[in-house]
Computed example of a mutant assay.
Amino acid sequence: MHRKGKDIKALKYIDLFSGAGGFSLGFDRSGFQNIFSVDIQKDFCKTYKANFPSHTLIEEDITKLSDERIIALTKGNDVDVVIGGPPCQGFSIAGNIGRKFIDDPRNKLFQEFVRVVKVTNPKYFVMENVARLYTHNKHLTRKEIVADFNKLGYTVECKILNSADYGVPQVRKRVIFIGSRVNETIVFPDISHTEHLTVKDALSNLPKLKSGEESTLLNHKAMNHTQQMLDKMGFIKDGEGREKIPLNLRPKSGDVRKYIKYNSAKPSITVTGDMRKVFHPFANRALTVRELARLQTFPDDFEFKSSSIAQQQQVGNAVPPLMAEAIANAVKKMLDV
């Protein structure tokens, strides 16, 4: 089974805001053992429980998870690493210039990540977030986050990593904070793929589907598009965008990443929770959940639960498992195992 990694000195991790489990899957594959995971979203938890039946999943609001309960959950375990990507709304592009990140109530979940690190005292932590956090508020937000962990006794470094550099057929840039209380030298994963995998590499051997068709492969069901949408997308070829749609039919506004077809010769654009208007390079339809999962490097036996929209959100919010595994291997290297 792909979720049972080798036991390497029984290395242990906690996954906060675990979602569908991309981060957990990468750490499992690297040989770590799960102590517990936490998430509040019911649809995401259905998927996590289905794919990680041996994990302890706490399905509730992390702000309601008391210090005492966290201590009880970790009893008998040395915590090697706390991982997670806390949702943060306080650094939009418009931003909150002049307001401290830590003081913004929208970033309460980041504060919860800090609290769990303080309570569990792991050797390491790994925190993932959107790339724009790195430069937000003239770099003050990043420095503020680092300082918050420094107060707990952690040496911290952060970098923007691109998932395509680690065998993921997708350009997905994320800021990764790694902190250590046992080592002053922080190690990030070495780039393993200077030649990036492409959309074609990821999707070419999947069953071919037309709009509305379904395959026996898990989560491989094509959306049933309206004729109006099919007509618009019929003007666009592999790698082209909305400018190919005649002016009288062309959408006048909306996300520039929509109404395009993936370029089969390049890595995918960043997979998000709503890819319904980004089309397959060869088929006149949006990608199935399984195809999106391929672009995120989830294995084909990883089943996403609940509605198709919820499944897309789960895939789009996840840390790509191959990237997570590369990060886990870097942590293992620092733990000298």
Rank of each mutant, 00 (worst) to 15 (best):
F149P: 10
L322W: 14
D28P: 06
L218R: 14
T194S: 15
P251S: 10
N107P: 01
Y48H: 03
E112G: 05
K151E: 12
P105F: 12
V117P: 00
Q314I: 05
K143T: 10
I191D: 10
V337L: 02
V119I: 11
M1P: 11
I83A: 00
G76C: 01
N183Y: 07
H280K: 06
G95M: 02
S92A: 04
K237L: 11
K210S: 14
S18I: 09
A328V: 01
Q227L: 13
N219D: 04
T63I: 12
I102L: 12
Q312H: 14
I70D: 07
M275I: 03
T194K: 13
N162E: 11
Y259I: 09
K100S: 09
Y124I: 00
L16F: 01
T56Y: 09
R250E: 12
R174I: 04
D15Q: 02
F149W: 05
L57D: 00
F32N: 03
N34R: 10
K123S: 11
S30F: 02
V182G: 08
E157A: 09
I260G: 07
G85H: 00
T272D: 04
N205L: 09
S192L: 11
R181E: 05
F44N: 09
G239T: 06
Q33V: 09
V182A: 02
Q228S: 15
V82C: 02
T141K: 13
V182R: 12
E214A: 15
K266V: 10
T74I: 15
N137H: 08
G316R: 05
N51L: 01
I236P: 07
M334H: 06
G21R: 05
F23H: 11
